[in-house]
Write a protein that binds this DNA or RNA. Structure first.
Ligand code: FES
Ligand code: FES
Lengths: 143, 143
DNA sequence: TCCGAAATGTGATTTTTATCATATTCTGCG
DNA sequence: CGCAGAATATGATAAAAATCACATTTCGGA
């Protein structure tokens, strides 16, 4: 469903959303221990996200990663699409091709609209909408 | 969600359910072209399933793979648990640990009961229940 | 009883994913 | 300007998943 990398990326972005801002940046070194992701692996993921303008960064002393207001307004799907590609999440349960309600495979009814609902939620929920729930204690950022 | 291997295994089992019986067995050679799975890879998967009594087989001439009445009554979850292990399907969307409604991660509400519903369906649906739908034309076995 | 047809067992190779390491570029500050 | 602190770029290694290859065992039939 989601690759390991996508999970890591989501955790990292959510962590940044909770703990950084334009004038409170954070280095990978200070992130990776808190979310339990291997340091250099995390670095690579953050660079990829940064390159696609999903997160922000600045180099040099006093630099680091952070989320701008613009970043916070992005839908979650952007994160997983950049990391996993658009295919993976949308592929059929039995085959290579994209899941297609018009031409349902044998398992399609068992998964129901579960998957498409999940995708829809990822498309419609922004990063800061999600962390509101976390801040309200309704859910938690694991590890 | 499901590994490639699990998808292959499901396709193969469903194909066997549709086209074989105790006295109409089928060789890997005749299966793999029809479901578009690499021959020796398929062979290995079928052996694994056979070893766990999910499908039946007999050696020698006139031998092959088939599903017994007993096999047909098995729930689908057996297939994916044998191939993928019980962990994979039940793991949390953000972390390593098992998905746990009591202690929901930040994404948990976005996926809703999608995943647990899917698992429940896999547990409650038997192989022959599923192929009834296929025979009725309500769904299709891809590739 | 013997032969050939099939699954089974074992392990090697390739590809993808995950991980590690290091050199390079940019940037704020003194 | 020049230095040190940060991200960025690049590529090497390790582990897991997918794929391939071949030798072995079992069994039905001539
Ligand atoms: S068509 Fe296969 S899961 Fe939807
Ligand atoms: S706890 Fe993370 S998906 Fe359920």
């Amino acid at each position: 469903m989601l690759s390991n990398s996508a999970k890591y990326a989501l955790k990292a972005v959510l962590y940044l959303a909770l703990h950084t801002s334009e004038d409170n940046k954070m280095m990978v070194k200070d992130i990776y221990t808190n979310i339990n992701v291997p340091q250099s692996y995390l670095a690579k993921l953050l660079q990829e996200l940064s390159k696609h303008d999903i997160i922000s960064s600045s180099r040099g002393p006093k630099g680091g990663f952070y989320l701008s207001a613009k970043n916070l307004g992005l839908p979650l799907i952007r994160i997983v699409d950049v990391i996993d590609g658009e295919q993976r999440l949308r592929s059929c349960m039995l085959s290579i091709h994209e899941c297609d309600s018009e031409n349902p495979c044998a398992l399609h009814h068992l998964v129901g609209n579960a998957n498409s609902d999940f995708i829809k939620n990822l498309e419609q929920t922004t990063i800061n909408e999600l962390i509101l729930e976390v801040r309200a204690g309704k859910s938690v950022l694991p590890l």
